[in-house]
Amino acid sequence: MTNLYFVRHAHSTYTPDELNRPLSEKGFSDATLVIRLLKTEGIDVVLSSPYKRAIQTVEGIAEYIHTNIGIIEGFKERTLTTVPSNDFAFAIAKVWEDYNFSWEGGESNVVAQERGIESTFKLLDYYKGKNVVIGTHGNIMVLIMNFFDRQFNFSFWQNLDMPDIYKLTFDGKVLRNVERIWGIN
Rank of each mutant, 00 (worst) to 15 (best):
M1D: 11
H9M: 09
P16A: 13
S24T: 14
S24Q: 03
F28M: 04
A31N: 02
L33P: 04
I35Y: 07
R36F: 08
R36S: 15
L37Q: 10
V45I: 14
V46E: 09
P50Q: 05
K52E: 15
K52G: 04
I55K: 12
T57H: 03
V58E: 03
V58Y: 04
A62R: 00
Y64A: 11
I72H: 06
E77Q: 11
E77V: 05
T79A: 14
N86D: 15
A89T: 12
F90H: 12
E97P: 00
Y99H: 11
N100P: 01
S102D: 04
E104P: 03
G105E: 11
G105L: 06
V110P: 05
V111K: 09
A112C: 05
Q113K: 12
E114A: 01
E114G: 01
E114M: 05
I117A: 03
K122Y: 12
L123F: 08
L124A: 06
D125G: 13
G129W: 09
V132C: 02
G138A: 03
I140N: 01
I140W: 03
R150M: 12
F152I: 09
N153T: 08
N153M: 04
N153E: 09
F154D: 07
Q158A: 10
M162T: 12
D164M: 06
F170K: 02
F170R: 00
D171W: 05
K173S: 08
V174N: 15
N177T: 10
